[in-house]
């Protein structure tokens, strides 16, 4: 069973193909943020170099966020289009899960932090469990001070990872002594590995069921009444 993994939730564009043998192809570029221009040629490149036809793919896995809106809409629309064209199911995985997963061998609490812009971060907390990691605190979005307050409230040994940790390193360390490290960006390599485990259990969905996770302010009607001229 071959899985195509598409990762565009942060500045990185990452594409991977893999299956029971693990990751067999991986392309990543973490500078330039040209998701739309980079993604499809990258898929083509990885498949060709790994000697795989798209028709051999049996599941499309995608990072559903939270993260960059501009990146996710490129990744999700490409992933859905490919899955639909191939008539294969999809597996959507959270960007925070993907950042935490490579840290599954530490006994610290793993806190992936993704830059949400405007001084805010997306974050969640994970713990090692046999065979992987488990979320111990729901994903949240808020100012960096909220994250620091959460860390202080738990006051456990913590490993903080992600591009939000890189950007707000000083602020976090000033507020709470913890270890920083791991990956700054999620990778499609991790995505394929995590998705493979789920695919073996047939935990997949149809393309129409895949939705981005934005974790943003609740939706509201735009108050056009203030602009009566529009109506």
């Amino acid at each position: 069973m071959l899985i195509l993994g598409i990762e565009t939730a942060t500045e990185r564009v990452s594409v991977s193909v893999g299956g029971h043998e693990g990751v067999i192809g991986l392309f990543e570029v973490t500078k330039g943020r040209r998701h739309a221009e980079t993604l499809v040629p990258a898929i083509d490149f990885v498949c060709k170099r790994a000697g795989i036809e798209l028709s051999e793919i049996s599941v499309v896995a995608v990072d559903v966020g939270p993260g960059l809106f501009t990146g996710m809409r490129v990744g999700l629309s490409a992933a859905k289009a490919i899955a639909q064209a191939l008539s294969v199911p999809m597996i959507g995985i959270s960007s925070l899960d993907l950042l935490a997963f490579p840290c599954r061998h530490t006994d610290r609490v793993v806190v992936p932090v993704i830059d949400a812009r405007k001084g805010e971060v997306f974050y969640a907390m994970y713990r090692q469990v046999p065979g992987g990691i488990q979320q111990v605190a729901e994903p949240a979005v808020g100012p960096v001070e909220d994250l620091v307050a959460d860390l202080m409230a738990r006051s456990q040994d913590v490993l903080v990872v992600g591009d939000g940790a890189v950007r707000y390193r000083e602020e976090i360390l000033e507020g709470f002594h913890c270890e920083m490290g791991g990956d700054a960006h999620p990778s499609a390599g991790q995505l394929v590995q995590l998705a493979h485990a789920r695919a073996l259990r047939e935990e997949w969905v149809q393309p129409r069921e895949i939705e981005p996770v934005y974790l943003r302010a609740p939706d509201a009607k735009i108050n056009w009444a203030t602009r009566a001229a529009r109506t």
């Binding site: 501009t70 809409r73 405007k118 934005y214 943003r216 939706d219 509201a220």
Partner: peptide, 22 residues
């Protein structure tokens, strides 16, 4: 042009701030 938008979620979807940032 946000003239056709009805909801703040649609505005968030456009991510104009991200477009500016880069």
């Amino acid at each position: 042009d946000v003239y056709r938008l009805e909801r703040t979620a649609e505005l968030a979807d456009l991510a104009l701030g991200e477009l500016a940032e880069f």
